[in-house]
Amino acid sequence: MTNAEKTLGMDVLGTGAPVRRAATGGPDRPLSISRIPGIDGLRALAILIVMVSHAGLGRYVPGGFGVTIFFFLSGYLITTLLRMEYGRSGRINLPAFYMRRVLRILPPLYLTMTLVVVLALTAVIDTRVTPLNLVTDALFLTNYAGLLGLPSTTPIPLWSLDVEEHFYMLFPACFAALAMWRGSRIARTLGAICLLTLLIRIATFAAIGEGEIYYWSHTRIDSIIFGAVLAVWQNPMLDEDAWRPRPWHVALALLVIALTLALRAPAFRETLRYTLQGGALFVLFSAAIQARGPVARLLAQRWLRVVALFSYTLYLVHMPMLEAMRPLGLWSVPVAYVLAFAWAAGMYACVERPLARRRQRSLRKVVQGA
């Protein structure tokens, strides 16, 4: 790639399509993809679905689907950043990538786990937290702890974080190896992995029934990879000629989502459901990121942006707060969620925001090829 091509933002994946400069800043700043209104709105929607479901409405609000949205979003954002980095520098700086992940994930996680330990030791929550459980949780093995005979007792839904971290451990190196390919070829490869994951789910269900299919990384990783497919093929934030869903496409995708949530048969729920949802989210994310008019304004509301900023810590802390406030009866949920937002706001101001500046400096260097 020539310097001129880098300046113009040509697509290094070989599609021949120009890459769109997606957000704030001039040529000396990396693209900012986390503040796209559609992304913020979807992130906020995902955490709100999870929190409402865990507030006692799980029978009516599909908390698991909120997690699936998080998975898709994570795969899309991370792969888009990797694609941008390769486009600017011609390589993927893996040490810098993993340092950014450490700064993003570990401080809020370990501080919230410390809070849980304090609550457990003071009998505010009725949870027995053992050192072995904490080690398992800290090493991102919670979703396989049952196989190890060490089921987690920590009231944090860490299994989904484990799935994401297992993806992050492997995918950047794989992407670096495939980055010279055309985007459509990478998408086909990722699609084949999604198909393989579906076949593994079907085989696992046939062998043991539902089991832990919902939680295991090797049976849920496709929910993240579907987002990666959108990042390398028809990316609405990078590709000028990206596919724009029509209203009937969106309506059909919403219908598919509704059907996947309505069909409760275990054989469907633990096999095809995640595949169909991934395909539908491909459409919905494409539409949301490119949205204009009322939809864009809805997704860009300030309160949704605030919820999106706090979403990671909210995910970590909302269930411990629910457990701690359980004695309050009817007041337990509102008080717990006020405290959860307070903890998340404090974490953002004192931990996440300062570390985000450091991550941005690192990202600026690698994206600009420094």
Rank of each mutant, 00 (worst) to 15 (best):
R201P: 02
R246I: 03
V118S: 03
G149L: 11
A300C: 01
Y144P: 03
R21C: 07
R83I: 12
T153A: 14
A267K: 04
R35Y: 01
L339T: 05
Y98F: 12
A123Y: 04
H249F: 08
G346W: 01
I36E: 02
M84I: 14
W343C: 12
S223P: 05
E210S: 15
I186P: 12
V50P: 03
A173V: 10
A23G: 15
L195Y: 01
G191L: 06
C174M: 15
E323M: 09
Y98T: 00
T2S: 15
L148Y: 08
Y86M: 07
L31R: 09
T24R: 14
L276A: 15
V102M: 11
A344D: 07
K6S: 13
G183R: 09
L42E: 04
A251H: 04
R104K: 12
I257S: 03
S217P: 10
R182H: 12
Q290S: 13
L13C: 07
L170Y: 01
V124T: 07
M84T: 12
M51K: 08
M99R: 13
P266Q: 09
E323W: 08
A4M: 10
L57H: 13
L198F: 10
L255R: 06
V295Y: 02
V67G: 10
A344G: 06
A300R: 00
F167M: 05
I289M: 14
Q368W: 06
A55S: 15
P334H: 08
Y337E: 10
V367Y: 08
L94V: 13
S89A: 15
I78L: 11
Y214E: 03
A262M: 14
L141C: 13
A258W: 11
P320T: 02
T204E: 12
S152Q: 09
T2N: 14
L363I: 06
G14E: 05
P157K: 09
P327Y: 04
W331T: 08
I49C: 08
V229S: 06
V351F: 06
V129C: 03
L81T: 06
T189N: 08
D11L: 09
R29F: 05
M84P: 00
G369V: 06
A258G: 15
L299S: 07
A138R: 10
V351R: 06
T2Y: 11
P294G: 05
I257H: 02
I47G: 10
V52P: 00
L45G: 12
A345I: 10
A336W: 04
G293P: 04
